[in-house]
Every structure is written in structure tokens, then in C-alpha cells.
Nucleic acid binder design. Structure first.
Length: 337
DNA sequence: AATACGGGGTC
DNA sequence: GACCCAGTATT
């Protein structure tokens, strides 16, 4: 069994040469680190980068986000998913702005809304050099293989053990770099399906590899069956002066998801609508709901309850559901081939 | 402990 | 088309 000191050295030396140049690695500003970590929750680096740049450009400080209308922040988050992250981040920004300074300890950071174990450890270690190991999906996979953990990694007891292992390996001198190195290893070499063991700094010390079982680990419990659904969206347009408007509906604050987001009307909600052209269909999944969505143009003599006419050129500034974004793209393809 | 929550990249 | 991603909050 390799000594933690030696494992650390191998990992850190590898990271120095393999480290990707990412926007949030060019700063120690805790606000920027926090923003990146929240956006990266269950979201890949390549997807986050453009959102991170736009969001930071608009809200360079907690105070800037705290002062913004929620709908504006959601509009900038629109398409990234898990919108509770944006709401919670704004609440966190409000607390930080009121406090005057960014909290510096793990406990204070962890008390912010939307900040759990992972994010608190990441911010505390990367921005403030606190010795807290992170345990994200990457680290779980790396350590499950490194230690040949064959139990279900979803189980609480196993997560606790892996967290202890991460903490044991953590480089106390450079915890932020160590955490990022672990995640980098998981994201670039210790891949779920096709681990690149020959390039791994731990190739000679990985227990799963020694057993030839690196492809099988980590073991994860089954997920629930997705629910298949079919809906029809309607694009109802109206011209007034030089402006074009489209009929839309805003989701209420009490809904379980996409609160406050604008969507296109469903056909079943507009019994008086008359179908026009079929624009096409697409698939869209929201957590475990797999939608097949068919899109038609339509005409309407009277607007249905709860629907509103939205100017086409103002859609960019609204929190727009991705279903609406995709459906409107079908329409635009038709008019500008 | 199980579940909801988005969306898309990737094999 | 399944898996899974720099997770968190709620039940």
C-alpha cells in the first residue's frame, strides 16, 4: 500500500503538467470560485464555461447579484438547469453582501443556501487554503478504483469511508490544488467507461487495476425508470406595428420545477386554437421525465387564461424554458433556412 | 435512504 | 439510448 505522501506527490506532479487552463483557475476571488463551483454542480466544465463568463460579467461581486432582479439572474442561468442553484446563489450573495465580507471558514461557507459539503470544501480549500477534502462524482470514482471499493458507492457508509480516504490523502500544504487534481484525474483520465490507466499517475498503485476490475468500478445502484410523455406545443404569433409577439405562459411560484420560467402554450390548454403548420418534433428530458414534443404553428381568436403576448425580441432577457427555446428554434429554421 | 431537480455531452 | 456529470434540499 502506497504511503499517502507518495500518492500525493505523484498526483500533484501529474496535475502540474496536465492541469487544464479554466477560467476559474485564474483567480482566488472566493466569489468567482463559489460561482464556478455552484455552476459545476452536476454540470460539465465545457457547458459551464460560457455561462460562467456571462454571469460573472454581469455580476462581478456578490453585491451585484444581490441587487439584481431574480428574473434577470434566471435569464442568464436559463439553459444551464437546476435553477434552484441560481435562486440559492442569489440568496447567498445577499447574505454575503449584507455581511460585507466573504465568509472564510468551511462552517460559514457551508451555511450559505445552496452550499453543501462538496461546495463548502471546494471553496474553503481553493479560495482560502483550508484543509477540507472534496468528494464529488470524480473523486468517488477515483477512490473507489484506487481502493477497489466494491460496495454500492451510493450507500452512506461507503461515502463516509471514501471521504475519510480523500481526507487522509489530502495534501495539507496545498489542499485546493490537491482537490482540483483529484477531480481533474477523474474528469480526464479515470473516466467512467474507458479509464486511461496507462497515463494515470497512480497506475502502479491502483487496486482496481491490479485486480483488472477498473471497468466495473464504481458500483452504483439502479435508477428509477424514466416516465415517457408526449406533448404538443403551439407557436401562436401576432403582429402589432413592426413588432412580432408570441403567446407564452409563465410557470407559477408553486410549481415543483421551472418556477417563473416562460413556456410555450400546450395544445391541451388552448382548446380553441387551430393548428397550422407542423414545425417538427424533438426529445427533451427533465429529470426522469422523457418528453417527445411536437410543435405546430396555430391561430387563436381569443387568448386563453393565463397566457400573455411576449415580444419576440425580448425573449433573450426572460427566463425561457429550454422546451420553448428548442421549439422556437424550429420556427426560426423554417423562416430563415 | 430515497427522490426531485435540467440539460447535455459522450460513448 | 443509457449513463453520468466539480450536488443540494427535501421528504
Amino acid at each position: 500500500m502506497i504511503h499517502p505522501r507518495d500518492a500525493r506527490r505523484l498526483l500533484m506532479d501529474w496535475f502540474q503538467s496536465a492541469r487544464r487552463d479554466l477560467p476559474w483557475r485564474r483567480t482566488r476571488d472566493p466569489w468567482r470560485i463559489l460561482l464556478s463551483e455552484v455552476m459545476l454542480q452536476q454540470t460539465r466544465v465545457s457547458v459551464v464555461i460560457p455561462y460562467y463568463e456571462r454571469f460573472l460579467d454581469r455580476y462581478p461581486t456578490p453585491a451585484a447579484l444581490a441587487a439584481a432582479p431574480e428574473a434577470q439572474a434566471l435569464a442568464l442561468w436559463s439553459g444551464l438547469g437546476y435553477y434552484a442553484r441560481a435562486r440559492n446563489l442569489q440568496r447567498a450573495a445577499t447574505e454575503i453582501a449584507a455581511r460585507g465580507v466573504f465568509p472564510t471558514t468551511y462552517e460559514e461557507i457551508a451555511s450559505l443556501p445552496g452550499v453543501g459539503d462538496y461546495t463548502a470544501a471546494a471553496v474553503a480549500s481553493i479560495a482560502f487554503g483550508s484543509p477540507h477534502a472534496v468528494l464529488d462524482g470524480n473523486v468517488v470514482r477515483v477512490l473507489a478504483r484506487f481502493t477497489a471499493e466494491t460496495r454500492d458507492v451510493q450507500a452512506q457508509s461507503v461515502r463516509v469511508r471514501l471521504k475519510e480516504e480523500a481526507q487522509r490523502l489530502l495534501d495539507p500544504a496545498r489542499p485546493g490544488d490537491f482537490n482540483q487534481a483529484m477531480m481533474e484525474l477523474g474528469a480526464t483520465l479515470c473516466l467512467p467507461k474507458t479509464p486511461q490507466c496507462l497515463l494515470c499517475p497512480w497506475r502502479d498503485h491502483c487496486q482496481a487495476r491490479a485486480l483488472g476490475r477498473e471497468q466495473e468500478l464504481p458500483v452504483k445502484g439502479r435508477k428509477r425508470e424514466p416516465v415517457k410523455l408526449q406533448i404538443t406545443l403551439l407557436i401562436v404569433e401576432r403582429e402589432s406595428g413592426a413588432k412580432r409577439f408570441v403567446l407564452m405562459k409563465q410557470r407559477g411560484a408553486h410549481e415543483s420545477r421551472l418556477q417563473g420560467f416562460w413556456e410555450l402554450p400546450e395544445e391541451r390548454d388552448l382548446p380553441h386554437a387551430v393548428r397550422g403548420v407542423r414545425l417538427g418534433e424533438f426529445k427533451h428530458s427533465i429529470t426522469r421525465h422523457d418528453y417527445t414534443i411536437e410543435v405546430f404553428t396555430a391561430t387563436l381568436s381569443r387568448a386563453g387564461r393565463g397566457h400573455r403576448w411576449i415580444a419576440m425580441d425580448s425573449l433573450d432577457s426572460l427566463p425561457l424554458a429550454t422546451t420553448a427555446r428548442k421549439a422556437l428554434a424550429l420556427r426560426n429554421d423554417l423562416y430563415t433556412p
